[in-house]
Design a protein around this nucleic acid. Structure first.
Ligand SMILES: NC(=O)c1ccc[n+]([C@@H]2O[C@H](COP(=O)([O-])OP(=O)(O)OC[C@H]3O[C@@H](n4cnc5c(N)ncnc54)[C@H](O)[C@@H]3O)[C@@H](O)[C@H]2O)c1
Ligand SMILES: NC(=O)c1ccc[n+]([C@@H]2O[C@H](COP(=O)([O-])OP(=O)(O)OC[C@H]3O[C@@H](n4cnc5c(N)ncnc54)[C@H](O)[C@@H]3O)[C@@H](O)[C@H]2O)c1
Lengths: 209, 209
DNA sequence: GTAAAAGTGTTAAAAATTTAACATTGTTAA
DNA sequence: TTAACAATGTTAAATTTTTAACACTTTTAC
């Protein structure tokens, strides 16, 4: 397996999420078309993705849920796991910490940062909130690789720069302000407004035919 | 203009966001390569998108920020605006209401719904919280077209069904549980875990070369 | 025992998206 | 005045992503 398409990476994460639910329900095997239905894609695409990662199901019984979960883990997780931090423990930051807690054993939110003195020193859902001043120090000490940005938009650019300087290798930016990172740092940005506008657009489109 | 690519729609929303910031800063014109830089894409792609919507800039001065904002609005917004509701006024729901409030004049969050009696009857950031029992009624009365789902994952499927039955035409699902909607209802799903796993994957990839 | 059915895996084709190439045109400066 | 420049707009090519086609294999039904 040399080079997985970006879209395949995303789907693998989604397949795993779906498979974990199946496992909970006691399902041991699953067909490509079942996965496809859940994800609103085609069975061919599922089979193709699995082909790319070299997984082969049992003919006529489909895929072994447990095996597949493990294989996807081998591919997208890093063995030792990855430590993550959240910058900006406001509404969204807190919601995210709460949401992520314990969701994936290989993704650990180990620290949060803020500038508000009332928040610094507290822990939220088990995650300690540090002063942003200590970013570099804590990132090094805790071997944090990924940062999630949930600071006010006006601080987005500065925060990204701080993260990069602290040695972070990946940034997930939830502020609506695009930031720049140097080569070697992976950046993902998401704005909920864009998603909502997209939905609104297609609703409008459907109405007017 | 017959058929805009899905990706172009997303980018138009992002261009507008960037342009609005420029406008605030008093910038009247902008070059394709400037927009491109902000969005981490190429200038060609920007020009191509604008070509698709039939906007023509002034040679050597670039694009008129105000004009372009208006044109993008004409394309992606609906004239009368669209009323939106949020189902599940918990951590994420509240954060979203707070975030969206007043962001786009054509996207109005006019109601929220919950099952928790302590929440029903209150308003949050000016948005009234109704009982989920009243969904159909309020959706009709307020002419709500789009629903954002932030209920616990276990209620996602039922909630989607309720929304469809109430006559909603577009759903933005932030629960990690994929749902199904009939033809004629536009569905967009987003799971933050997938984004985080993607970032983690590319960080790992970069480390191991 | 054999044919039909229902899966998987893979190669090939199609479609969507991005990138390149380049013609065109105001602007600037020698 | 005119050549160089730096931008846009557009057609064509390349790339990425999805979909189709189909060979193959086990199970099931008769
Ligand atoms: N709330 C949402 O649902 C939502 C959705 C999408 C995007 N966003 C974006 O996420 C960001 C946060 O939104 P929110 O609603 O949580 O806002 P918030 O004001 O509740 O939280 C921001 C937090 O960041 C802290 N902060 C401020 N400056 C900081 C700095 N320089 N370094 C570290 N921490 C700092 C503040 O003290 C606060 O705790 C905003 O950019 C917002 O646009 C929010
Ligand atoms: N918190 C996050 O950052 C985050 C991020 C991504 C996804 N999510 C997902 O979003 C959803 C909400 O997360 P949260 O952290 O806000 O949870 P939460 O428990 O804080 O909020 C859920 C809200 O939904 C209400 N509710 C429960 N059943 C309902 C029903 N049938 N109809 C209407 N309302 C109902 C609850 O009363 C509560 O107010 C979950 O599915 C979660 O997985 C959350």
């Amino acid at each position: 397996m040399k080079h997985l398409p970006h879209k395949t990476i995303e789907r693998l994460s989604q397949y795993r999420r779906a498979l974990l639910l199946c496992l909970e329900k006691g399902k041991t095997h699953i067909y490509s078309h079942e996965i496809a239905k859940i994800q609103h894609i085609t069975a061919v695409q599922v089979r193709r993705d699995l082909m790319l990662i070299g997984y082969t199901g049992t003919l006529r019984k489909g895929y072994n849920v447990k095996e597949l979960i493990d294989l996807i883990g081998n591919i997208i997780d890093s063995e030792e796991g990855i430590n993550v931090t959240i910058i900006g423990m406001g509404n969204l930051g807190r919601a995210l910490i709460n949401y992520f807690a314990g969701k994936r054993s290989k993704l650990r939110i180990v620290a949060g940062f803020d500038t508000n003195p009332d928040k610094i020193g507290n822990t939220m859902s088990g995650v300690p909130c540090h002063s942003i001043e200590q970013l570099k120090e804590v990132v090094a000490a805790e071997d944090i690789k990924v940062g999630i940005m949930t600071v006010p938009a006006d601080y987005a650019v500065d925060t990204a720069e701080l993260l990069v300087k602290a040695g972070i290798k990946g940034i997930l930016n939830y502020t609506p302000k695009p930031v720049n990172v140097p080569e070697g740092v992976y950046l993902e940005e998401y704005d909920m407004i864009t998603s909502l506008e997209k939905v609104a657009f297609y609703v409008k489109l459907q109405e007017t035919d």
